[in-house]
Amino acid sequence: MSNENEMTSFAFTPENLEKAKAIIAKYPAGRQQSAVMPLLDLAQRQVGWTSIAVIEAIADMLEMAPIRVQEVVTFYTMYNQRPVGQHHVQVCTNICCLLTGSDGVAQVAKDTLGLDWGETTADGMFTLSEVECLGACVNAPMMQINDDYYEGLTPDSTKSVLEAIKRGETPKTGPQDGRQFSAPAGGPTTLGELTFGTEKA
């Protein structure tokens, strides 16, 4: 984990540079700025967060003003403007999650990890963030840990997920309440007695 004041320069690793070039090549000539979001993501995967050095390197690469890149970085909660721990716990508190109990999820997450929003544990293992909608409203409330979604949370399931990660295990991702992806809770509600043609009694 690098410190906020430590990163003075940033450059893509050779492999990532190749990837970056491939991403830029997807867009028409002169529209290379469209690659700003995937490039920021690539850089964040390389160094963990999008520092000013990252912003300037990408601005240089895409021939755009650094402020335009910073605007993107500050808009999306997925770009970390500060270094984060090994496990970045992102709890959604937008409307659907709020209505389905994200307050309880957030409280348990705070208690289990001993953190408040935006804090990182001393051992650098966990960072807890409050984020905007992550697009899993149908399975609200939810949290994202690194790239994995944990959905349909209750205070208890939140705690068990976090405890499992603390123990070094990899808990099952996706809905924690037994639902299959975003299928209706409590089983199918339509097409239940689906029959075809001659099978009709």
Partner: peptide, 25 residues
């Protein structure tokens, strides 16, 4: 400042209610 003056140092930082107009660091 971006179009006419050609010195893009101002931008909208943050999102929704937290959006602030500010300078690049």
């Amino acid at each position: 400042i971006s179009e006419i003056a050609g010195t893009p140092v101002l931008g909208g930082l943050g999102r929704s209610e937290h959006l602030e107009i500010g300078r690049y660091v």
